[in-house]
Design a protein around this nucleic acid. Structure first.
Lengths: 211, 211
DNA sequence: ATATTGCATACTGTATACAGAATACTTCAC
DNA sequence: GTGAAGTATTCTGTATACAGTATGCAATAT
């Protein structure tokens, strides 16, 4: 069965990548005509993608005034972080037993994370990948969807934080503590440690943003 | 300051209302051209609204095959319910002290709910209104947004359940128990009772759907 | 020089046009 | 009558056109 994909999805991904790569820094105005010609498509799918990104909080929009890349705002970070914390904890709690393969995968990502230096975007991508792997077996697919979508927000803040502060990693030691609990199949402890991860991370980002 | 509103928003609301009123039962195909002529606008804002409703789970879509009202699916209900439970509990936990005015408002909605008979759509609307009022002061605006959006899903299931089973109310006694805790400014207990509300509600809807 | 008004341009939101795919229908064979 | 094949029609996804508003620039006045 061949599945066709609407243009708007590719466009969506392309714009998101641009934002994450930093080609479109926070505050930049995003004109649909420009993007349309750059990507070689018409304005229609571009606008559909822009509307979705706006809904997800990556972009902002004013009626008649178009779209721009959302500025970094401590409140947005805190609010989204609190939500993600609750949802990831829930997702982990209701996950089934962790197969050894999954634990190895998490360890591997963590290992690569420990070796990666200086590439903020890559570190953030690996961080997200680690979480995605952690929650991969969560039986609530809608929950997984919402979590993935919400992650678009912290990505932007983490990237800015890593670049600006020069920190190398966000939380390798938290990762290992969570993995340790999962090795014992103690999902409850793992979940509570995952909560602490977010708590700490939010504090760290929060104090940085008050520069 | 005058705020203008894009057509797509009005269209969005109009379609949502149709779905909630039951004019468009689950499974109905939704054609953008038809809606466009009915509403007296072009296809563009209609499609923008349809895309958003699809993201929110009210509609479904297949590439090249258009949109239709999502069919009722026990798994979707369970999954969304679990998420809403976690988020509403979180929202209540971080809410500030409840002013007397708010408590009176909750009691008033509850009173109207107790008197309303037979009008499934109105009962569901009041139920949602009760929850919205409960979480109105939650300082996390993004959380409030997500909760409102997610509520589109249970609305459809609750409506079908009330119509089909002939039950009159969903949870008046739960409401009072929550209000009781709030009167003592015991948000922690109130939040845990709110969790029980969702737990019970999901069980009730779940067993009904296995007819 | 600076502020202000008018004008030109650019861009957004919406409408319409077009191409290709999916569905419905008709016709014909059996 | 039932089923298949081919044709018509409908509808979707994308492109383009259009109208109105916002933005930037220039010319003029202060």
């Amino acid at each position: 069965m061949i599945t066709r994909h609407p243009l708007r999805e590719q466009v969506y991904q392309a714009i998101l990548d641009s934002v994450h790569r930093g080609d479109l820094p926070p505050g930049t105005r995003v004109k649909d005509t420009t993007l349309a010609t750059q990507l070689g498509v018409s304005r229609t799918p571009v606008r559909e993608a822009l509307l979705q990104l706006t809904r997800e909080g990556v972009l902002q929009a004013d009626m008649g005034r178009g779209f721009w890349v959302g500025r970094l705002d401590p409140a947005e970070m805190r609010e989204t972080g609190a939500i993600l914390r609750a949802l990831e904890v829930l997702a982990l709690e209701i996950s089934p037993e962790f197969p050894g393969e999954r634990l190895r995968g998490l360890g591997e990502i963590d290992r690569v994370l420990g070796q990666t230096r200086g590439d903020a975007e890559r570190i953030v991508a690996l961080e997200e990948e680690w979480h995605r792997t952690l929650l991969q077996d969560c039986p609530n697919s809608r929950l997984r969807d919402i979590i993935s979508t919400l992650w678009q927000v912290p990505r932007r803040y983490m990237r800015a934080y890593l670049r600006d502060s020069g920190r190398l990693s966000l939380s390798t030691q938290h990762h290992s503590r969570i993995i340790e609990a999962l090795r014992r199949q103690d999902r409850q402890t793992a979940a509570s440690r995952l909560g602490q991860y977010w708590e700490r991370g939010m504090e760290e980002l929060g104090s940085w943003m008050q520069r």
